[in-house]
Design a protein around this nucleic acid. Structure first.
Length: 688
RNA sequence: GCCAGCUUAGCUCAGUGGUAGAGCAACGGUUUUGUAAACCGUCGGUCGUCGGUUCAAAUCCGACAGCUGGCUCCA
């Protein structure tokens, strides 16, 4: 089973099979992932968008990762221009405080700006912000003019050699090392310029505002470390993030919005509403679904399952581990070793090796080479599903075969990347694998996209971005027939158009095994997360030698499609909590109705109301606490219970309920049976 | 993983070298209440863990664990 030659994915040794992260369009200021040389698992819900810089495909990146042309720079918006200037003002201020700082780069970003710099004998902390801001405001008051000067490459190099670039004056013995490197990166023939404000001169293509007085509505937001050029083999720099606006009012509004966003953070709401927990004793990145969160997940899964039944899927169940050989065949082990939990050696072999005083290194090497056998916590579900497909010979008449499972997978995320429900080490994909003929690929893709659209529309999530990853037309690293690729890519493109939402086509970003389409959504702090995905795969059927008998009575290789409309239940639920700010639609709410008797006098009728709600299969409770009605309402509001039924003596006499909705307020008195019928309908139709 | 910041009662937080605090929650009682907090009382903490400095540590130092943010939007 173990391939003699390196698996295909090793042979290609190209970054293209990593999920892309470099080609986000002008995206969030706070990146979803750090740059890394780790190999991250492909297919559904990649643990990160991480992929190493890809020299071989750089020229095909046509988005933000490609060097901006001077024309593009000139199109910088007014706000970006202001913020870019603020980065220079911040550099000026920092140099006045720490003259030996070496600056690397300082661009405007979506919500502000930052500057990366090396400062050997001081670590910036938030305590320094006040001082730096005060100095920045001073620079703004001095109203320095930003002056552009076009210089020759030689002159630029000379300025950098003397420490003048990114400095307030010449700094012998302190060459502008990063600027020198950046100068070397400017293509031959491109204009080189520097900008000066006051004493500060920086290598810069601009553009800038005219005077530093524009840069007074600023606030420093965060300090962090970064690697020069994002490469963890390069020196580590300090980065200070700031934000800036044209007016003080806009700045205040922005800061206010950030506060509001924090209140919607799924980690905060998850705790407040008791939806999920992460427990130190259980482990980092391992989500515990609390009873209320479990209700939401169960409702979502029921919803998906219903859609699957309608659209011809078969649901399956598979175990959480599989033999290492399975993943050697699939190519995941040991190639993606870095992203997996360590292999579990076979019990008896493990004991024998221990008796032989075998070292850990021997054990690891044995597992890797295949000399020793063992198991792996599954990093993805496809190999199991493939073996289900292969249980019986298939005819073209059997295709497509659609196997779905809420399958839990395990991935070894670096500790620094874990957080909330959006980046975890164990998560459940709403996974499915479709096995079809090459001719069926287009129709199947459309089917998948329809499902994704149904899901997102039902939940009112319309603010997402679609990314179509296509192959690099000049590369030969791809698996599968180019004609089939053309068809699959066209099908993906048509599907994206059909969806009617903004999408980007990204040539060169397809995995080596097939093109794909991803759904990307932003969280409350502006970070982008990949949710749903549909990926065509020509590779795994090859590696597992899958086949079916065609109409021509000969063997053919099926094509696989991986797809997950939610991505993972964890990440999706996290995003959903923020999307609704905890106010879930009634069908998803852990508690749908709370009955609030005004006093003990009304408790008998209130109990009857509760019984009827429960009989109608609604999730309802009764609040018999000795609180006043205002307090009961407040509690129910804070817990985001969508319907509150106030029951007093009037209501009891009329067999009616006084309805209050958590978002719509007091809806007045209604007959109980009428309210009940409407509510059952609202839940059944999954209304928003 | 790396850099920075943080970790005090179930929750939100005060306390910066000298006997651990508040509000909310919980619990007990009084109140029987009409659309976002009735009143009184009680309980609750080896100040993340381990080690060090000191007559004395929540407070200073170190290690570890966990949490949060960041780790090329390209001069």
């Amino acid at each position: 089973m173990v391939p003699d030659s390196p698996p295909v994915i090793i042979a290609t040794d190209s970054p293209a099979h990593h999920p892309p992260r470099r080609n986000l369009p002008p995206g969030p200021s706070l990146r979803p992932a750090r740059p890394t040389r780790r190999r991250t698992l492909p297919h559904i819900h990649p643990p990160s968008f991480s992929s190493p810089p890809s020299p071989s495909t750089t020229r095909f990146h046509h988005m933000s990762n490609e060097r901006k042309t001077l024309d593009e720079r000139a199109q910088m918006s007014d706000l970006e221009r202001l913020r870019h200037s603020c980065a220079h003002v911040m550099a000026t201020a920092i140099l006045r405080l720490w003259p030996n700082a070496q600056f690397a780069y300082g661009p405007p970003v979506e919500s502000g700006f930052y500057y990366d710099f090396d400062l050997p004998n001081h670590r910036i902390t938030p305590d320094d912000f006040e001082t730096i801001e005060a100095e920045m405001k001073k620079v703004a008051r001095e109203n320095q003019k930003f002056e552009k000067r076009i210089i020759s490459r030689e002159e630029a190099r000379a300025l950098a050699e003397s420490g003048r670039l990114g400095g307030l004056g010449e700094r012998p013995d302190n060459r502008s090392v990063f600027k020198l490197d950046l100068i070397d990166k400017i293509p031959e023939g491109e204009e080189i310029s520097c900008y000066q404000n006051g004493d500060f001169i920086d290598l810069c293509a601009g553009p800038h505002v005219n005077y530093t007085s524009k840069c007074k509505n600023i606030k420093l937001m965060a300090v962090s470390s970064s690697y020069y050029l994002g490469d963890d083999s390069k020196p580590q720099l300090q980065r200070v993030y700031g934000t800036a606006f044209a007016t003080p009012e806009e700045l205040a509004q922005h800061l206010h919005n950030l506060e509001e966003a924090k209140k919607r953070d799924h980690r905060r709401l998850g705790k407040e509403l008791q939806l999920f927990a992460v427990d130190e004793k259980v482990g980092q990145g391992l989500i515990l679904w609390l009873p209320k969160g479990a209700v939401i997940r169960q409702q979502l899964q029921d919803f998906i399952s219903e859609e699957l039944r309608k659209t011809g899927y078969s649901q399956v169940f598979t175990p959480h581990i599989g033999k290492l050989d399975l993943y050697r065949t699939s190519g995941h082990f040991p190639y993606y070793k870095e992203s997996q939990f360590a292999a579990i050696p076979e019990r008896d072999q493990f004991q024998k090796l221990a008796d032989e005083k075998c070292s850990c290194a021997d054990l690891a090497a044995g597992l890797e080479s295949g000399e020793l056998d063992g198991y792996l916590l599954k990093p993805m579900n496809c190999p199991h599903h493939i073996r289900i497909f292969a249980q019986s010979p298939k005819s073209y008449r059997d295709l497509p075969v659609r196997l779905a499972e809420f399958g839990t997978v395990y991935r070894w995320e670096q500790s620094g990347e874990l957080g909330g429900m959006t980046r975890v080490r164990a998560f459940t994909q709403d996974d499915a694998h479709l096995f079809c003929t090459p001719e069926q690929v287009g129709a199947e893709i459309i089917g998948c996209l329809k499902l994704v659209k149904t899901v997102l529309t039902t939940l009112g999530m319309n603010d997402y971005r679609v990314r179509v990853s296509l192959r690099d037309p000049d590369s030969s690293k791809y698996v599968g027939d180019p004609a089939n690729w053309d068809k699959a890519e066209e099908a993906l493109r048509q599907a994206a158009i059909w969806l009617g939402v903004p999408f980007t086509e990204e040539p060169g970003e397809a995995a080596f095994y097939g093109p794909k389409i991803d759904f990307v959504i932003k969280d409350v702090i502006g970070r982008e997360w990949q949710l749903g995905t549909v990926q065509v795969d020509y590779n795994l059927p090859e590696r597992f030698e899958l086949e079916y008998i065609g109409a021509d009575n000969t063997k053919h290789r099926p094509v696989m499609i991986h797809r997950a409309p939610f991505g993972s239940m964890e990440r999706f639920t996290g995003v959903l909590i923020e999307h609704f700010a905890g106010h879930f639609p009634t069908w998803l709410s852990p508690e749908q109705v709370r009955v609030l008797p005004i006093s003990e006098k009304s408790e008998v009728f209130a109990s009857e109301v509760l019984a009827q709600l429960q009989a109608a299969n609604l999730r309802a409770t009764l609040d018999t606490a000795p609180d006043k009605i205002g307090a009961k309402i407040r509690n129910a509001q804070l817990e985001r219970v969508p319907y509150m039924l106030v029951i007093g003596e009037k209501e009891a006499a009329l067999q009616s309920v006084s309805v209050r909705h958590a978002k719509r307020g007091d809806l007045g008195v209604r007959p109980l049976d009428e309210f009940l019928a409407d509510l059952v309908q609202e839940v059944a139709s999954r209304s928003l």
